[in-house]
């Protein structure tokens, strides 16, 4: 019987394959295609896809855009931003979030614009009442990413930076308040 040190002899390509090994190849092959199919299909029929428009931007340009948005927005009595329309701008910079805290309405769809002014950051968000409902998106300083989101449940949503961005990274926290309409 051949070992893995031996040079296989004769016509090894035509040696038969064990019946169960053949069955396993079939199972593994079908599963591989199935999970590809599901992932690909979900981009069409699913509700959770990290997909949105992207634009190349200069970090300082993005900063100006966010500033203009903040100037236009209202504030509630606690000083939290109330977006003027459906667009919500968030600018990550060492070590804080421009545009947060913001107050949103549950059930309404917003275009969340993500970008950074200096280095890469991570947008990691979860509601305080259910920590396992969390998602994480990468933020790059040269790209503006517009991801639509609508929050079903009212509550306080916490944003943590989860990409290393320098000394002080672990203090980078922000808040979204999702309120009953």
């Amino acid at each position: 019987m051949p070992g893995p040190f031996d040079k296989p002899e004769g016509n090894w390509w035509d040696e038969p394959v064990n019946r169960r090994e053949g069955m396993w190849l079939g199972i593994a092959g079908v599963w591989s295609l199935a999970i590809f199919g599901w992932m690909s299909g979900f981009t069409r029929f699913g509700d959770q896809n990290p997909v949105g428009e992207t634009y190349e931007v200069d970090p300082s340009e993005y900063r100006e855009t966010v500033q203009a948005y903040i100037d236009e927005a209202d504030e509630n009595e606690e000083g939290h931003i109330i977006p003027p329309g459906d667009s919500v701008y968030i600018g990550a910079f060492r070590f804080n979030w421009d545009g947060l805290p913001v107050v949103l309405e549950a059930g309404q769809e917003y275009d969340i614009h993500l970008g950074a002014y200096d280095v890469q950051h991570g947008f990691s968000i979860r509601p305080e009442h259910s920590l396992s409902q969390q998602i994480n998106l990468q933020i790059l300083p040269d790209t503006e990413w517009v991801i639509p989101m609508s929050f079903d449940d009212p509550g306080t949503y916490h944003v943590i930076c989860n990409e290393f961005c320098g000394q002080g990274h672990n203090s980078m926290h922000g808040t979204l308040y999702v309120e009953e309409p």
């Binding site: 959770q48 990290p50 769809e109 409902q133 998602i135 639509p148 989101m149 079903d152």
Partner: peptide
Amino acid sequence: WFLLVQLWSIGA
């Protein structure tokens, strides 16, 4: 996947 679809709706 079950955990994922519990989330609010995200993305285009």
